[in-house]
Design a protein around this nucleic acid. Structure first.
Lengths: 354, 354
DNA sequence: CTGTTAGCGCATTCAC
DNA sequence: GTGAATGCGCTAACAG
């Protein structure tokens, strides 16, 4: 049987309470006593039974996810994953909630962060918008002792505890590399559709993409970036216009959302020959892959991200270390042939996750 | 607060023990009493606290993984992942062990299965070899009440409870599709290196690959399959010979192991122009991607597979349902640009996993 | 500073 | 058939 607190209490010749104090780094223990207990812990190779600990402290951790509102399918999927995780979050003694704010709006995000802090939550995860208000709001949260993680789009240099999302520069590079290989020697310029440069993920993806394209053997013109605000309508008109103006367009990299509009414009123009690479596997991009209109989709798994955020925030709330390697979010590549089965009805009894 | 067994006992006007009996489907309860309790459970929307339940029944579940021996890097990684999972398996009250048997040897596998059953384990996961001995051994295990899952390579039609691994036909199709796109209009035949047709995953990958290649616009000759027995030396000579005999070889699909030999042969011949697609991200294939010798690697995450196997076997042992959608193993595509960071030192404190 | 005690939600003897 | 009592490993009042 593996050692318990009792064993270490016996071995150290102290009481359970004292063991608990040193185990949890609480004050009120003489240095010598502490040393004895720590020696016993080490000697017995004790590891705390987290389940039992959680059971005993029937504390619950309210965690809030702040996401952009609107019909960005990936964000809605993220929201759905939070709700899904919420179904069996009781087991981890967390209580998940979602707050939505206008997209690309730093002031609104900052206000939502402050509100969450005022509500005394145990942790905040947010899709970061770049802006000074956001930086200071994050600082206030951390000053108030509230753990904070950025989700999907990072804000390096801020006070956030952790970033949960893919390496967006590598994502852009991957897109560029695939685009180059798929196009091979075929001539023609490449267009890029972004949402907004106010979120860093879009900027980083563009950076990686340009780097990879410029490293290709075949030099290729990259048209000026189109900013579609992640809006399907705006994206539709931007792409439609681009297709009309650039008849020899060879490739299209969509590094943000608004893909519904993009696909509609391509279909309307009957341009199945353009090599299209988009981000996030949603109903739209999946249909695009299946119909052949889209060639590859780069994806980050929303479910993984949500679960990772929960784990990290809980760890931070408890002052425990997080294993960075474990929490690294992978960049998935999907083509028509490795599409996962359609996600079917949610099963609340589901646990863990891969 | 969410309802507990006490609440339902009160509501139903019975004792804790009775509640527990109906909760766990144990006999010794009158139909009327059972109905009352079930009504209370439904009314309160009770859901069992699994952590507390596990704590109470301090039972442990010995699970055994049966893997092929030898220096197949993917199998060794699988083994390492089992040990890694074993470090924090105490939390799930499981005790993991690994048994290795000669590769592609149905009789040895069957014997190992029987031995595990004799040791009275709570569950078995094995990389299945095709053969009648294996079928009957699986049947004996199941007859003895021991849950059984196939890992990596399935044995559909057998008595196994579940298969944990990728859809290998889709994997082959993906390889074929990528190969076709990467080669584009470049002429030349394609070679296929397999391990052995005695494991179904290799057969299925081949099937998918051939299907995708034959669906390509550009017809292309596929050379007869080379069987390298997952052995680096044998694979080396087969590939070296092939490269010598087929100077215009355009592509090479390695659907099994032995990639160290393959890469060595390519490097020796200086054939960086051949489009190479291989399986499993190991030190060899990673180096191949980085050096440009390998163009794409299809991967199944060994860590995910091990954790999935543990979850499924535990669920089966407890008679609980498994969420098939949750346990689906994805096929990862890696190219040079989306390679994950080198796995660093293992952190035993790590939990869960994505 | 340190120890005693009573739970957390559930499973399991053992009586009745 | 059913119920009372005890313990799983840990935390948290409350005493000393």
């Amino acid at each position: 049987m593996r050692p318990t607190v009792h064993d270490i209490a016996d071995k150290a010749g102290v009481s359970l309470a004292t063991v608990d104090r040193v185990l949890n780094g609480r004050p009120g223990v003489r240095a010598v006593t502490r040393a004895k207990v720590e020696a016993a812990i080490a000697a017995l190779g004790y590891v705390r039974d987290v389940a039992a600990a959680n059971l005993a402290k029937s504390r619950i951790y309210p965690l809030v996810f702040i996401l952009p509102e609107g019909d960005n399918p990936f964000m809605r999927e993220l929201e759905a994953e939070v709700r899904r995780a919420g179904l069996h979050s009781a087991a981890e003694r967390t209580q998940l909630s979602v707050v939505t704010v206008p997209a690309f709006d730093a002031a609104a995000l900052a206000a939502a962060i402050d509100a969450a802090v005022a509500e005394n939550v145990s942790g905040i995860a947010a899709v970061a918008v770049d802006g000074p208000e956001v930086f200071s709001a994050i600082e206030r949260a951390r000053a108030a002792g509230v753990p904070f993680v950025t989700l999907v789009s990072d804000l390096a240099g801020s006070a956030r505890d952790h970033f949960i999302g893919v390496d967006n520069i590598a994502a852009g590079r991957t897109a560029g590399s695939l685009m180059g290989r798929f196009l091979a020697t075929r001539p023609g310029p490449v267009a890029v559709l972004a949402g907004s440069m106010r979120v860093r993920d879009h900027g980083e993806r563009l950076e990686g993409f340009l780097a990879a394209m410029s490293a290709m053997l075949v030099a290729r013109a990259i048209l000026p970036v189109l900013e579609g605000q992640d809006d399907p309508e705006l994206s539709f008109s931007l792409i439609a216009e681009c297709l009309a103006e650039v008849p020899d367009l060879a490739g299209l990299y969509s590094l943000g959302a608004g893909n519904r509009g993009l696909i509609r414009a391509l279909a309307a123009a009957g341009r199945t020959d353009v090599c299209v690479i988009a981000h996030e596997l949603t109903a739209e991009t999946r249909a695009g892959l299946e119909s052949g209109l889209v060639d590859a989709v780069l994806n980050q798994d929303a479910g993984h991200e949500v679960r990772s955020a929960v784990r990290v925030l809980r760890a931070k709330a408890d002052g425990l270390p997080v294993n960075a390697a474990q929490e690294r979010i992978r960049l998935d590549i999907f083509i028509r042939d490795n599409l996962p089965a359609e996600p079917d009805a949610v099963d609340p009894s589901a646990a863990g996750g891969n």
